[in-house]
């Protein structure tokens, strides 16, 4: 067990856990930030995607000891009022079905647009391919990413 001071959603928070504990479980079990989802535990499905600095990362494979003083942003911290352009686009297109994967999809999409505000279809597919949606909302996700890109660029 060791103590860690983590910068999560703009706040410094302390946790005492085993250093190997993945951020996914630190967020869910210790901070009750439940928007970040467990899907596979091996970085294959993207349900647990958060931002580490500006990068979209799979929190199930991110040991708490490797985070250091980097900023972690979860779906709860993406925007204050739930009105990030990507979230707004998701509402406009009414993307979700079951909804379980969508926080991860949104975190991947928002990191993509931060780095590439005007992605091509192929670039969207490449960026989003790590996020599985079992309900099959991919056509809507792609549409929403494009709408968000347009609003970011507007």
């Amino acid at each position: 067990m060791a103590k860690f001071n983590l910068n999560i959603n703009g706040k410094t928070q302390e946790v005492e856990v085993d250093p190997s504990t993945p951020m996914l479980w630190v967020l869910r079990d210790h901070f009750k930030l439940l928007g970040t989802k467990y899907g596979c535990g091996i970085a294959q499905c993207g349900a647990c995607t958060v931002h580490l600095g500006d990068d979209a990362v799979r929190s199930c494979q991110l040991p708490v000891s490797s985070v250091g003083d980097k900023d972690i942003t979860t779906i709860e911290g993406l925007s204050e009022k739930g009105d990030h352009p990507v979230q707004q686009a998701w509402l406009e297109v009414d993307v979700p079905q079951c909804g379980y994967c969508q926080a991860g999809q949104i975190m991947t999409a928002s990191a993509l647009l931060e780095k590439n505000p005007n992605p091509s279809d192929e670039e969207i597919e490449t960026a989003m391919n790590g996020n599985i949606c079992r309900c099959g909302t991919y056509t809507r996700i792609k549409k929403a990413v494009k709408i968000a890109a347009n609003s970011v660029n507007a």
Binding site: L33, L34, G35, T36, K37, Y38, T74, I75, E76, L78, G82, Q87, W90, L91, D94, V95, P96, G99, Y100, Q102, A103, I106
Partner: peptide, 17 residues
């Protein structure tokens, strides 16, 4: 529109998990 969409896109807890 889906009545739960806002809660879903903001990561509100709602699943059994």
């Amino acid at each position: 529109k889906n009545v739960d969409a806002k809660d879903i896109v903001t990561g509100e807890p709602m699943f059994g998990m």
